[in-house]
Amino acid sequence: MTVLDETNPANLLSTIDQQLQSLRDEGAEPSAILVGPESYAALKMAVAERFGREPADLEQYQWLTVVLDPFRDNRVCVVPTNRESTAGVRAERVG
């Protein structure tokens, strides 16, 4: 699991997509996307740009719940299920 500092809408979706794929490649099941307020704003913009619509509140991305954590600032993290997390997930912070 990787925690990234990311607020650039141009990079955000590909970063999240890479995190999702990385978890799946490791045999883990992604559970949720945790974002801070700055990353949440960037995520809304990135989704709006990708799908050609106006930015709006976002509850899910790629069928995963988007959780807004006011203490995360600009950090983004795709987390595995609780079962997999308690089994020993290594977290890395990048950025």
Rank of each mutant, 00 (worst) to 15 (best):
M45I: 08
D5T: 07
T65I: 04
R83E: 15
L20V: 13
E38G: 01
L12R: 02
V35L: 10
E49A: 12
R93P: 00
L43V: 11
T65C: 01
Q18E: 15
T15H: 10
I16D: 08
C77G: 01
D25Y: 07
P70K: 03
R72I: 00
T15R: 08
A91S: 08
R93S: 12
L58E: 04
A28G: 06
G27P: 13
L12A: 04
G88S: 05
M45W: 00
V3K: 07
D73V: 02
V35E: 04
D73Q: 13
A91F: 14
F71A: 14
M1G: 04
G88E: 07
E59Q: 12
S22N: 11
V3M: 06
T86F: 13
V67K: 13
E29A: 09
K44L: 00
N11L: 12
I16Y: 08
T86A: 06
A46Q: 05
L43C: 05
K44M: 15
D17M: 03
N11E: 13
I16T: 07
S31M: 04
P30W: 05
A10K: 09
K44Y: 00
D25H: 11
Y40F: 15
L34E: 14
T65N: 12
L68Q: 09
P70M: 02
M1V: 08
V94D: 09
P9R: 01
E59A: 09
V3Y: 00
E38N: 09
P37G: 08
V67M: 07
T86R: 14
R75H: 11
E29F: 05
L13P: 09
V79Q: 07
N74L: 05
R24S: 12
R83W: 07
D69C: 02
N74I: 01
L20E: 10
Y61V: 04
E92S: 06
N11I: 00
S22C: 03
S14E: 14
V79D: 08
E38A: 14
M45C: 01
N11T: 04
S39W: 10
S31W: 10
L20K: 05
E38L: 12
G36N: 10
G36S: 11
R83T: 14
V35C: 13
M45Q: 15
F71V: 07
E59M: 02
E59T: 12
L64E: 04
S14A: 09
W63L: 03
L58C: 04
L12S: 04
V94K: 10
T65P: 06
Q60T: 15
A48H: 02
E29M: 09
A48G: 03
Q21K: 13
P9N: 02
A48Q: 01
E59I: 04
A91K: 06
Y61E: 01
V78H: 03
L64Y: 04
A10L: 05
S85G: 05
T7S: 08
E49K: 10
V35Y: 06
